[in-house]
Computed example of a mutant assay.
Amino acid sequence: MGTKPSYLSKWNKTKIIVGAPKLAAHVPETRIMSRSSLLAMLNRYGMVYVKPDIGHQGVGVMKAEKLRKGYLVHYGTVRQRFGTFDGAYKWIEKNRRRRVYLVQRGIRMIRLGGRPVDFRVMIQRNEKRNWEVTGTLARMAHPGKPVTNGSQGGTIYSSRPLLNKVAGSSRGAAILRQFRELAYRSAYRLAGSYPKLNELGLDVALDTNKRSWILEINTGPDAKPFVLLDDQSIIRRIVKLAKRYGRHYDLTIRKAKKG
C-alpha cells in the first residue's frame, strides 16, 4: 500500500489554513485527539466533534457533550450517556478503531425544525486555471444524526432562500459573499502548498450569532448534492470543469433528499 497524499489529512489542511490570520479567525480550535485533548476541549467548550483525520462523507464522525451530570456521545443514530469521562472516552476509543482522530470545537449551528444546518461551497479551477466558486448549497441533518452530509441522509436546499429565511435578505446576501470569500482565500492558501489541487469543497457553518466557521475542507468533494438543486446549470458547470482536469463524478443519489 502506498502512502496517502498529505492533502487528504484534515490536520495538515487545518495547520495550513490557520497560518493565514483572515482564515484562522473562522476555524474552530482543532487538535489531534487524545484523552487529554478531548477532556480539555470538552471542559472548554462543552461540546466537540471527533472525526477521522482521513475520511469523507461524514463517516466515523461523533459528537460529544459534557452534561451537568455525565457525558453524551452521539454517533450515527446512537446516543450513549456515560456517568464519567473515562466511560465516554473508552467508548469513543473503541469506535474509532485505532484510526487517527481529531477533536474540534463544536459549533452551535443554526437549526431548522430542530435540525442543524450547514453549507457546502464548491470551488474549482476553470478553463484559465483560475479558481471559480461554482456552487453553494445548504444541508440539513438527517433526523437523529449529528452530521449534515447528503450521504448520511441529509436534506439539500438552495443556499440563498435558506439564508434569507434565517438571516433576512440583506444579511443573507452578505453571508453568502463571505462564504465565497472564505472559499477563495482557502483555495489560494492550500494551492500554495499543493499546487496541483483542482477542486475544494468547503463545509461552512453559521453559529447562532451568524458567524461563519470553516468546519472542514475536502480535496475530493462529492458533487452529488448539487444534482438536487433546482438550478441545474450549477451541476452542469461543476461537471464540465471537472472533466477538464480528469475528474468524473458518480452523480447517483442514494440517501440525500431534496428540500
Rank of each mutant, 00 (worst) to 15 (best):
Q178M: 14
L163Q: 00
H248G: 08
I123E: 01
K15F: 04
G60K: 12
A40M: 06
R185F: 03
V239A: 06
R35F: 06
K10I: 03
Y157K: 02
V61R: 00
L200D: 13
A223T: 12
K255T: 03
Y75V: 11
V18C: 11
E181F: 09
S158E: 11
R139M: 08
R115T: 14
Q80P: 00
M33H: 01
E132D: 10
L162F: 10
S233L: 02
L197T: 10
G220S: 07
S193G: 09
D250R: 13
R180H: 03
V103N: 02
R108L: 06
G58T: 14
K243A: 10
S37R: 09
I238C: 02
M1E: 12
Y45M: 09
S233C: 07
L251Q: 12
S193N: 15
Y7E: 07
M109H: 03
K51A: 02
I253D: 05
A40G: 04
E65S: 11
T84S: 09
L197I: 06
G58C: 12
L229E: 05
P225R: 09
F85A: 08
K243F: 01
P221E: 07
V73A: 13
I217D: 06
F179R: 00
R189L: 08
G19F: 04
T77P: 12
Y45T: 07
V18K: 14
R79A: 07
R96W: 15
H248C: 14
G220Y: 10
L137M: 12
L67N: 04
V227L: 03
R139I: 03
Y75C: 08
T155G: 06
K90C: 07
H142E: 06
G60Q: 10
N209K: 13
H26T: 11
Q124H: 05
P143V: 07
R108H: 15
P221S: 15
N198I: 12
L215G: 12
N209I: 05
R79V: 10
G55D: 12
Y45F: 13
P146V: 11
F179A: 04
V18W: 04
A64G: 14
L102Q: 13
G113W: 04
L72A: 15
W11L: 10
H142F: 14
G168K: 10
N12W: 13
S9L: 01
S233I: 01
M33D: 03
N218G: 09
D203E: 03
E93G: 08
K10C: 03
A88Y: 02
V27Q: 01
M140C: 06
L202P: 01
Y249D: 04
K224H: 03
E93S: 13
T208Q: 11
L228P: 06
I107Y: 00
K94Q: 12
M62N: 07
A88T: 00
K94F: 15
T134K: 04
P28L: 04
I175D: 00
Y75K: 12
M62K: 11
P161Y: 00
R108D: 10
Y75I: 05
L229I: 01
V61A: 02
Y194N: 08
R247M: 06
V78I: 14
Y157E: 06
P21L: 05
G192Y: 07
H26P: 02
Q178W: 05
W131T: 15
D250I: 14
L162W: 02
K63E: 04
Q104R: 01
L215R: 02
S158W: 00
R99M: 13
R97T: 09
Q178P: 02
N43Q: 11
L137D: 10
A167C: 08
K22N: 08
